[in-house]
Design a protein around this nucleic acid. Structure first.
Lengths: 233, 233
DNA sequence: CCCCCCGTTTAACTTTTTTTAACAGCATCT
DNA sequence: AGATGCTGTTAAAAAAAGTTAAACGGGGGG
């Protein structure tokens, strides 16, 4: 997981709508470059790698469909979403043929656009990077693999049960930070009732036993909030 | 590229619309299976490999969102398109979170649906074309051919029975990932009752014996969920 | 046609994992 | 300090999975 912002190329000839969208997307954490026609859009596209293109279909100088085709010549994978004024089917069809990944009809809500952007990005990220769910955790002198449900220490290997591993995994993800009781209950037990809460306490006790050989490792309780896996370095 | 027809799972509770769509899609060259609620839909999904799922959101017995989540547990790549009666934003958002690839609002034209189907299929084939029907699997030091039902290791060859091979095949497809109990039961036994569950446990034991000569290969149980074929590389 | 063989299911028993229960201890607030 | 609600711990009951062997049942050879 890298920390870089997602880069979006927005090509929209209506200056008002354009800057509105740009601001909204920036507020949502996307790095957005704006062009006001297809020609400008293509210039920008050539200068930088984008993660997503939002193209208005109806534009002066060079329309969105033409731009999309040009982009596709150079990049077969970058997601493209069309903004279309009319819901004419021919447009839609042509758009998809030009290699669009989605289209959205004006007028649309910001929220709707955001949802579609996220969906398209999720697809494209699924495509490329193999999902990176961390499985190996270092916990003081121990090494924990949540996939294999194994806790290694000094050559010895302790097999963990499914629930033990799931809970330790959450603690590791939140290492030196608080793991909220209800959050843990909902993600592992899918329900935060009284008995599941007690069950979780039982598992905390088990984990403490497994981890007792390293004094630097400790699971402390935050009264009324949850637990914290402390690892002193 | 093989010549087989594209298989579509259509789940729609309105019988009229359902069969209409089925006929239309068949006319367009798609092989379409129809279910009228989420439960039926999941049963069909377990029994066959589909290239695309078309799910109505509002359905009795089990709704489309729930079904989509279940499908996603077992198959992270098959494209899902929702058919939604209302254009409610919450639905849309929830749908995408459930792993949808697109959604289409009723009423829609057949042509519009077809365009979206083609777009989604184009994307998914772009993703990883060499999909499915794999017969040869490497499992640590073993080589497993699910068509021939043979497990080779170090020159020796172990003949597998039909059920042994089917189960090992599912485990291989989900290698290093969880194979859901119910999914396996429905795929292989077509019914997930108590006795079939015990039968499956018996077969897990058999497979463990066959695979015991490679310490890097292990079938672990995920309590209450299913099994995971671990292969250390 | 009957019987045997083989894959599969059912059964019975064991072990492991998880949940529930009970009680003791501790935190926080008044 | 006393009341109340959380947490720690241990043991039991319950549920799920591991294992082994006998029962079942369909197809092929005698």
């Amino acid at each position: 997981m890298n920390n870089e912002k997602t880069n979006i190329l927005l090509v929209e000839d209506d200056a008002n709508l354009g800057s509105l969208l740009q601001e909204y997307l920036s507020a949502k954490g996307y790095n957005t470059k704006l062009a006001t026609n297809g020609k400008e859009g293509f210039d920008l596209f050539c200068k930088q790698d984008f993660d997503l293109c939002l193209l208005d279909v109806m534009m002066p100088v060079k329309d969105g469909l033409t731009l999309a085709k040009e982009i596709r010549v150079n990049n077969k994978v970058v997601p493209i979403i069309f903004l279309t004024a009319k819901s004419m089917k021919e447009d839609t069809l042509e758009g998809f043929n030009a290699g669009a990944d989605d289209y959205i009809t004006k007028p649309f809500s910001m929220e709707e656009l955001l949802v579609r952007i996220q969906a398209v990005l999720r697809r494209s990220s699924k495509q490329l990077s193999g999902n990176t769910e961390q499985a190996e955790f270092g916990v003081g002198v121990y090494k924990f693999n949540s996939d294999k449900q194994l806790l290694d220490y000094n050559g010895a290997t302790q097999k963990l049960t499914t629930k033990e591993a799931a809970l330790l995994r959450l603690l590791c993800i939140h290492k030196n930070d608080i793991l909220d009781r209800n959050f843990a209950l909902k993600s592992i037990w899918h329900d935060d009732n009284y008995f599941n809460g007690r069950s979780m306490d039982v598992y905390i006790a088990k984990l403490r036993k497994y981890l007792k050989d390293d004094a630097k490792v400790e699971i402390i309780n935050i009264h009324g909030k949850g637990f914290k896996l402390l690892v002193n370095s």
